[in-house]
Write a protein that binds this DNA or RNA. Structure first.
Lengths: 203, 203
DNA sequence: TGCAACTTTGCATCAAGTGCAATATTGAGT
DNA sequence: ACTCAATATTGCACTTGATGCAAAGTTGCA
């Protein structure tokens, strides 16, 4: 029913969601325990209670499953606001907000999610490559945002460079959070990281 | 013999170098012609005149072969100079010089090398991931450079952020060169790209 | 010329990943 | 409650990437 609450979806959809979560959870636990190469798709599928064939109905690759990489779509409200020059009205602050949204998608939910993803990427370089590939897949979406905003109120430079800076903020915030002992939320590091980058390029 | 000229190495070393070049050349030509997935390791090995097993003696993966990714080591002279505050004495200009050295390693030699690598990465997202993974593998080496320089004359911020900026310069210069019609040398775009990034973070 | 060192290669193997089709499950209408 | 369409799961065969082992071949050096 169209008026059914979002969390009251059909059994099929709920099972699908639960299965995807089970796969990611199993994948991450097993890889953290045994190392990426030692863990097979068959082992992950077993732990998640599905067949290996089904595994590939949910994720394109073992890498994707381990990172739990979801499609990322910006909230329509956020898009409208950003394009109109918001949410803060100042570009650098708005970059931080956008970077925070991306961090939410990259790191996922749950209290230990960022730590877990970071630990996995640190342990497995190839997952880091996957992480970057995810960024590139979403680059166009972000760039379009900047292009629209630019058409209303000119940005200091082209949308491509703005997009690049956002991705660097995400990356640098994760590293800074890690270097700072992983306390608090990753997004809290965005202002400091932006200041550091400014210090370098203005030297 | 230790006093043998660099280009007068043994037959074995020369054949090894030639084989590696033949593999990369074959890989790039075949992938550009047929697409990454349609080209097998066996086909590349055939075209390069070696066995598939030998292919894996030269490159860890098909991806690495297609990108022709070489180990990158900074010239000892350059290292000494950079660490001492050179080559220009101004950090941002020195970042550009360092980024240019990296571009040389990433894009390889030959007049069409940058265009070819860029084209491959544009056509195959997974090669882009590989490209980033290469950066991450060399991150420590670059970060060490900054750490040493920092110990003599403090940088505006930590070596990790400086390293991140260098990598962004490399990436953005490639994109800028592409967007500008691929004329001239990629390294010529570094100053403009640095200025653009500065414009964004200072907005 | 002979031998050590190194490289190439064939082969068997494992694992990731895919297409196809049979079987199972769920949703919707009556 | 039943039926059927739509969708998902699964088994299987297969291709390809990648690896370890050891035999055979090539190169360097005395």
């Amino acid at each position: 029913m169209s008026d059914r609450p979002a969390d009251d979806t059909g059994l099929r959809a709920r099972k699908k969601r639960a299965r995807a979560d089970a796969i990611v959870d199993a994948a991450q636990r097993l890889v953290l325990a045994h190392g990426f190469d030692a863990v097979t798709v068959e082992a992950i599928a077993d732990a998640a209670g599905i067949s290996p064939r089904t595994f590939f109905n949910y994720f394109e690759s073992k890498d994707d499953a381990v990172l739990g990489q979801a499609s990322f779509d910006l909230d329509a409200g956020f898009r409208g606001e950003f394009v109109a020059g918001g949410p803060t009205g100042r570009l650098t602050a708005d970059l931080e907000v956008l970077a925070a949204a991306l961090l939410g998608a990259v790191a996922g939910s749950g209290p230990h999610a960022p730590a877990r993803v970071l630990e996995l990427m640190q342990a497995e370089p190839r997952l880091l490559a996957c992480h970057f590939a995810w960024f590139e897949r979403h680059k166009n979406q972000i760039e379009d945002l900047f292009a629209e905003r630019h058409s209303r109120q000119p940005l200091p430079t082209d949308p491509a460079t703005c997009t690049m800076v956002v991705f660097v903020l995400v990356r640098a915030a994760l590293d800074d959070w890690d270097a700072g002992g992983r306390r608090g939320d990753v997004t809290e590091h965005l202002p400091a990281v932006l200041a550091k980058i400014a210090a370098v390029v203005n030297a």
